[in-house]
Design a binder for these strands. Structure first.
Lengths: 321, 321
DNA sequence: CACGGCTCTCGACAAAAGTCAAACCGAGCG
DNA sequence: CGCTCGGTTTGACTTTTGTCGAGAGCCGTG
């Protein structure tokens, strides 16, 4: 019985333990193995998503602030991660919440578009495993040539792995040197199909990037600091799935955007549920831009940003009236 | 801090413990309460469905037998509870599986029709709690006048309670003494609406009853042993939601059926997912009848019954060819 | 205002679960 | 044939968790 105790035994152990509520030693007896092995199987079962432990994220929607934001911003749902006393690690807390929310949104048979960035990768990294069936995770934008710690394909693959889903990668650079080349590449059947398939997604996960020297598109070498500055002066307000957007949330009319291989904002907008996650307070302006463009339907933010958003929305309304 | 530690604290504790993976004493520190309280909150969190622990039921669909049955019977999904060595309690095992399957099928916003019987009640009884939102559980058939251990309204309410859903009961007797009265009652607005609302359900849970002296409709006094015998001779093959069906799965043309207040088989059939659970081996014939009528789309049975079903289906096919 | 009744809370103990190094076992290989 | 290697399994040990009865704060009531 040394061969492949795997799946079958893990399943049985998980079943007896979690569904029937037996103790580990009882399970061990039933299965005629030692209790230590049972403990180990159960860990594997949790790690592979054979058992799902999920906490309701209702607490974070119940928040009055969240409700008001939903109304003010016309979003389907908002979750607010508290940033006070009882939080363990403020920086990952938003990601933990986002991961839970994400898992709650995913259903069997879904097709999920995933962008990239530190936030998305953090979420992928802490997300628990789940044993979904028939799920496809597609990469929303081209890859980075340079080695970078959280590449688009890594984000996609990691999330696919966690969901036990199929990962569809995108084998094209994020940004090319000339517009012609970008056009030509977009016309390639492999790429074209992938791009066309994006609007078939019913769930998207992404964050928004800043347009300063700290922006991930700068750090990864897609743009230089000075190029970015030029773009900023030209109206750049944020980065979504590798593309520059202006304050209205529209794709900025610039050479860089035309050289990018990524999901069109239009096809992104066709996706039913679009979950945007913003971790840093410094992303406030980009976030406003993304919201202005109606780029997301579901939002996860920290309490401080949430408050600023509400203040801002209130101010705008007041000014308008 | 002695007042209403409730919801809020429970949520926080559950969040820190399950989502962040802190230890109970760490949670206790964070929340400035004793570890014992944390343990107690966590239990409550589990009991109320604030955290969900669910085991994948894939093991039971992966079974080759299940797959073959799905094909042979043209069902959407079949789960087979093993009835051998490693099972704890053969009689409840099917119910435990059914409960898991049921919870896996329920989604936010669903409207669920629930019939009654020992099987359904057992499922309700062992089903873990879940914190669904916007879910409505409706009773599929009239109530029993006589006190009986598992009444239709109990089944409905218990399941509603477990799901934290709204329960819609049916305040009419299951069976009346005359056809006229039944007709009149069905025409009553309250009742008519409820009956009409049944086809709006997207999930149904029921079992099938036998047509012998042990049948629950006999035990609850809706029919006498001799009446049942007459019906059996007239072609009765099973009981679904309080109604008698023949071997083809059609409602039997008899006075009893006309005196019953219950979901029409037609509106039942309009429900997208219809989960039928059969615990006892003795329900084989009624099960065949229900299957013949295409009354269910999802099936949970024990291994022995499953095998007999497959043999039977094979024999029929062979005979036909 | 003293009295149960109520719920929440805590400390201490017992039970259960997690962990780790060592043993084991078959497979492949020199 | 005897070796190592990767994996599983185990017993023994430690840590974590569940539980229980007692105590503390907070009512409404007599």
């Amino acid at each position: 019985m040394a061969i492949r105790p795997a799946e079958q035994l893990i399943h049985k152990a998980a079943w007896l333990y979690y569904a029937h509520g037996l103790r580990q030693d009882e399970v061990a007896n039933q299965l005629k193995i030692s209790r230590a092995s049972v403990a180990m199987y159960l860990r594997k079962a949790r790690e592979t998503g054979i058992v799902n432990i999920s906490t309701s994220t209702q607490l974070f929607t119940d928040d009055v602030l969240a409700r008001r934001l939903e109304d003010a911003l016309k979003l389907d749902a908002v979750w607010i991660a508290p940033e006070n006393a009882y939080v363990v690690d403020p920086s990952t807390d938003i990601a933990v919440l986002a991961a839970s929310v994400f898992l709650e949104l995913v259903k069997k048979g879904d097709r999920i578009g995933v962008a990239w960035g530190r936030t998305v990768y953090t979420i992928a990294d802490i997300m628990s495993f789940a044993d979904l069936q028939d799920v496809t995770v597609v990469q929303l934008c081209g890859n980075l040539g340079a080695p970078y710690s959280y590449r688009p394909d890594q984000c996609t693959m990691e999330i696919a792995r966690r969901l036990n889903a199929k990962g569809l990668n995108f084998y094209a650079p994020l940004v090319l040197s000339t517009e012609e080349l970008a056009r030509a590449l977009r016309a390639e059947p492999v790429i074209r199909e992938q791009l066309a398939g994006i609007s078939d997604c019913n769930l998207a996960l992404f964050s928004v990037g800043t347009v300063d020297a700290d922006s991930h598109v700068v750090k990864c070498g897609a743009l230089t600091v000075s190029e970015m500055e030029v773009l900023r002066n030209a109206g750049a307000a944020g980065v979504i799935a590798g593309q520059i957007i202006d304050a209205a949330g529209e794709a900025l009319d610039c050479s860089y955007n035309r050289r990018v291989i990524s999901a069109e904002l239009g096809s992104l907008g066709a996706i039913e549920k679009r979950l945007m996650v913003v971790q840093e307070d410094s992303k406030f302006e980009p976030l406003l831009a993304a919201l202005a463009g109606g780029l997301c339907t579901h939002l996860v933010v920290g309490a401080r940003v949430a408050q600023r958003l509400l203040d801002h929305a209130g101010a705008v309304t007041k000014k308008a009236s």
